[in-house]
């Protein structure tokens, strides 16, 4: 019998594939295991398939974990709001709360002990601090660092890829502004029109724009950015002039032109 080449494995029966996968995941009965052992002993394609499958699962299980960006945790914490029903009393945790430390820590003599310890530590701390000059590293570690979220809350995004232009736009709520983050790559002069008429928004500014050949024209309810060919990345900022009526969301209209020809239209929206 001709042995099959490695790259031309014959398709195996579904039942065989179920057995191969099942044994790798540790889910076969004794009877099924015996059946599979007999099959593997007598079939080269089955053995090859098994080895290949085992290798794939090994790689999948060992894929390295991606480390989230540094800013992400603080971004989440700073933006999350806890919705608490009206009938729930919000607990303000206390250092002497029995829930936190148990009954024995809330005893009066323990509270006195804590107070004395706190005074002692403060005294020692003041003495040590006063006895040496603080370096910039010391002061930065004392005040702590807050990693600001550079991205804000994502409200929506759009991406397109046309023959003469491709782009990606993300709408975010960031530091009290609506941020329209535009990335473009264009073969010709690119014009991006952003319309926000009737949205209780006003144009507040633009960052990241390379000035050479660029032009920004703002009108009531719209702003137009013209840039040269090539790669561009800039951020338009919009400020809210009034609260939106309840239940309504922001809706921005985007038009992309390359050398005067409309290439793409999109809408972006969000509830901020």
């Amino acid at each position: 019998m001709n042995e099959p080449t490695h790259n031309a494995q014959p398709d195996l029966d579904q039942h065989v594939l179920d057995l191969l996968n099942g044994t790798i995941d540790g889910g076969l009965s004794a009877v099924e295991t015996a059946e599979l052992d007999k099959l593997l002993a007598g079939s080269i394609p089955a053995r090859e398939s098994y080895e290949e499958l085992k290798a794939l699962v090994g790689v999948l299980d060992e894929l390295p974990e991606k480390v989230p960006p540094e800013y992400l945790y603080d971004a989440i914490i700073s933006q999350v709001r806890l919705s608490v029903p009206d009938d729930v009393q919000v607990e303000k945790p206390s250092l002497f709360s029995t829930r936190l430390f148990g009954n024995w820590l809330s005893a009066p003599w323990m509270r006195t002990g804590f107070a004395v310890a706190a005074v002692l530590m403060l005294t020692i701390g003041i003495y040590r601090t006063g006895s040496e000059n603080l370096s910039p590293e010391d002061t930065s570690s004392m005040t702590g660092t807050v990693v600001k979220n550079p991205n804000g809350v994502l409200l929506g995004s759009t991406r397109f890829n046309a023959e003469v232009m491709n782009g990606e736009v993300k709408l975010r709520y960031k530091d009290g502004f609506l941020s329209v983050d535009v990335r473009l790559e264009s073969d010709g002069t690119a014009v991006v029109n952003l319309g926000f008429s009737g949205q209780e928004l006003e144009y507040s500014g633009i960052t990241g724009l390379q000035n050479t050949g660029a032009d920004v024209a703002a009108a009531n309810g719209s702003v137009s950015v013209t840039t040269r060919s090539g790669r561009q990345h800039y951020e338009l900022l919009l400020r809210r002039t009034a609260e939106l009526p309840q239940g309504e969301s922001t809706l921005l209209i985007l038009e992309f032109f390359a050398d005067g020809v409309l290439v793409h239209e999109a809408e972006l929206g969000g509830s901020r």
């Binding site: 806890l82 608490v84 029903p85 729930v88 919000v90 607990e91």
Partner: peptide
């Protein structure tokens, strides 16, 4: 659910 941000 009780509004404890440390739990969050």
């Amino acid at each position: 659910k009780r509004g404890d941000r440390r739990a969050m």
